[in-house]
């Protein structure tokens, strides 16, 4: 492995570990709320060019359409978190866990997914900020689409970046058949910043 590739591998490894620690907090917050175990995937990184967002399908863990939520963040880093909820998630079971009535309406289902988005994205961004010793502020979550895959959604939008880094983690809760893919999307201009922060972290290890 040449020097540059080795450095890139170290940065990638470190960023994945920072994400892993952040997601552990997010999973714990969700587990406490629904009182059952949440399984976490190993974090994965994907680089996407705005001309070919469909290429994300080749590497994403899950490419099926589902409910798409977003939560933007700004501060020392900028970007957005996209959360995709599997179509087959049994919302009525999740609703029961969270104290809603047994057969939630569509509006209540949206409210639930927004709440879960806020819990996962909030904990994850807080974990990133703490470990990298930076400030990140995030806005409220909103619904991007009631039924779309991430790549379909990206392909339909004028994207405000040329290339972007997508950091992916999958949360699953077997007892309620809930599958959720969380993607932190960071435009290329901010990836230099996050890798500079990762370099500082590596210097401390």
């Amino acid at each position: 492995m040449n020097e540059m590739t080795e450095r890139e591998a170290m940065r990638r490894d470190a960023l994945q570990e920072v994400l892993n620690i952040s997601m552990g907090q997010a999973a714990n917050n969700l587990a406490q709320l629904i009182d059952t175990r949440v399984h976490l995937s190993i974090p994965r990184l994907h680089w996407v060019h705005s001309k070919h967002p469909e290429k994300l399908n080749e590497t994403l863990a899950v490419i099926d359409a589902g409910a798409l939520m977003r939560q933007s963040f700004r501060g020392d880093l900028r970007g957005e978190v996209i959360v995709s909820f599997d179509e087959q998630s049994r919302h009525h079971l999740l609703a029961e866990c969270l104290g809603y009535r047994a057969s939630p309406s569509l509006a209540e289902c949206h409210e639930l997914t927004l709440e879960i988005t806020n819990i996962l994205a909030g904990a994850c961004l807080k974990g990133l900020a703490e470990q990298l010793e930076i400030e990140i502020h995030f806005g409220p979550p909103s619904i991007l689409s009631a039924h779309s895959s991430v790549t379909d959604y990206l392909s339909r939008q004028p994207l405000p970046w040329t290339d972007a880094l997508f950091m992916e983690i999958r949360f699953t809760v077997e007892s309620i058949s809930m599958g959720t893919d969380l993607l932190i999307c960071m435009p290329g201009e901010y990836t230099n910043r996050i890798f500079a922060l990762i370099d500082e972290l590596l210097g401390d290890v």
């Binding site: 552990g24 907090q25 999973a27 587990a31 059952t36 175990r37």
Partner: peptide, 9 residues
């Protein structure tokens, strides 16, 4: 030593 520190885990 893990980031996944849920009580059940």
């Amino acid at each position: 030593i893990s980031a996944d520190f849920q009580p059940e885990v």
